[in-house]
Amino acid sequence: MDINVQSFAVANLRRRPHALETGGFVAGFDPATSSPYINYATPHPGARPTRDDVRALVAAFRERGLVPRLEFAPDAAPAVEAALRDAGFTVEETHPYLVCTPATLIPPHRDGRHPAVPVETPSCDEEYAAVDAAQAESFGGLLAPSAEGTARLRRTQESGGGVRFVRAPDGSCAGAAACSAPAVGTAELAGVATRPAYRGRGIAGAVTAALTGAMFDRGAASVWLEFSGAGSRRVYERLGYRHHGTRLDMRLEA
């Protein structure tokens, strides 16, 4: 499965407004933001980069005023981590990832004490902006809400991926998630977010299940996601997600 996830990472970065292929890597850039979580690179499966390959990749980031950063599944490209470390890159984070297939998907269980959580698809800029704001709040300001973030969410929905949210009583967004359009048979579900005031109500599970099912309806053979903490892992495992591997985030500081 590492090969599928890594092949997806390559295909997904090629969808960025600007994509660069160099020395066994693909880098994706979005001029609307300097965020290292949007602008990053990944290796092709099996890549064996030389020192010159890594230098050329670093130069592509530096000339754009960006932090050189990569996300990848190391088992799919075993030679890459050592090559990056030799160039001064360090591990930013290690992320286990989970995979769900149509055969393992378990819809959320609901009964009289736990009614179904209504999930919606944004239909206007105000709703996409509310999703963007909810994700920013949930992730502690890692990405500030912005017009560019709102536009990225709309593009995700309109380009074959999906955005789903649960409406708060005041009409805003209580929680949401997004999923990239499928590629090479799989899709990445990300940005699963519940605002602090609405946690513990089954929102994360509801939007995850809705998006996972939507991607299977569009022909994906699997959906994968990263998680943070044992609590979120339990939410995903109850829906049929299972551990399949690990991804690394690495960066080169100035």
Rank of each mutant, 00 (worst) to 15 (best):
M1G: 15
I3E: 11
N4D: 15
V5E: 05
V5P: 00
A9I: 07
V10N: 02
R14I: 05
R16Y: 12
P17D: 07
H18A: 15
A19D: 11
L20R: 07
T22D: 08
G24K: 03
F25E: 02
V26Y: 06
D30G: 05
S34G: 15
S35H: 11
S35F: 05
P36N: 10
P36M: 12
Y37C: 12
Y37H: 15
Y40G: 03
A41L: 07
T42Y: 03
P43V: 04
P43L: 01
H44P: 05
H44S: 13
H44V: 14
R51I: 10
D52S: 15
V54N: 04
A56Q: 09
A60E: 14
R64W: 08
V67K: 12
V67P: 01
P68T: 06
R69G: 01
E71K: 13
F72T: 00
P74Y: 04
A77F: 04
A77V: 04
P78R: 11
R85H: 12
R85M: 12
G88M: 10
F89H: 02
V91N: 10
E92G: 08
H95F: 14
P96F: 08
P96I: 04
Y97P: 00
V99G: 02
A103E: 15
A103V: 12
T104C: 09
R110D: 12
D111Y: 08
D111C: 09
R113M: 15
E120W: 07
T121R: 14
D125W: 09
Y128G: 03
A129I: 02
A134L: 06
A136Q: 06
G140C: 06
G140L: 05
G140E: 05
G140N: 05
G141N: 07
G141K: 05
G141V: 04
L142I: 15
L142A: 15
L143V: 14
A144V: 08
P145E: 02
P145I: 06
P145Q: 00
S146P: 10
A147I: 07
E148K: 02
R154V: 03
R155A: 15
R155N: 13
R155G: 12
E158G: 11
G161W: 01
V163Y: 03
V166T: 02
A168I: 01
P169L: 00
S172K: 01
C173D: 02
A178Q: 10
A178D: 06
C179A: 11
P182F: 01
V184I: 11
V184M: 09
T186W: 03
A187Q: 03
A187R: 03
A190V: 13
A190L: 13
G191D: 06
G191M: 06
R195A: 12
Y198K: 01
Y198C: 06
R201K: 13
G202L: 00
A204M: 03
A206E: 05
T208P: 02
T208I: 01
A209V: 04
D217S: 14
D217F: 12
R218M: 10
S222C: 08
V223I: 10
L225P: 00
L225Y: 00
E226K: 11
E226N: 12
F227V: 09
G229V: 06
A230G: 14
G231K: 11
S232F: 01
R233N: 09
R234H: 14
E237H: 10
L239T: 02
R242K: 12
R242D: 04
H244P: 05
T246V: 15
L248E: 00
L252M: 08
A254P: 15
A254F: 12
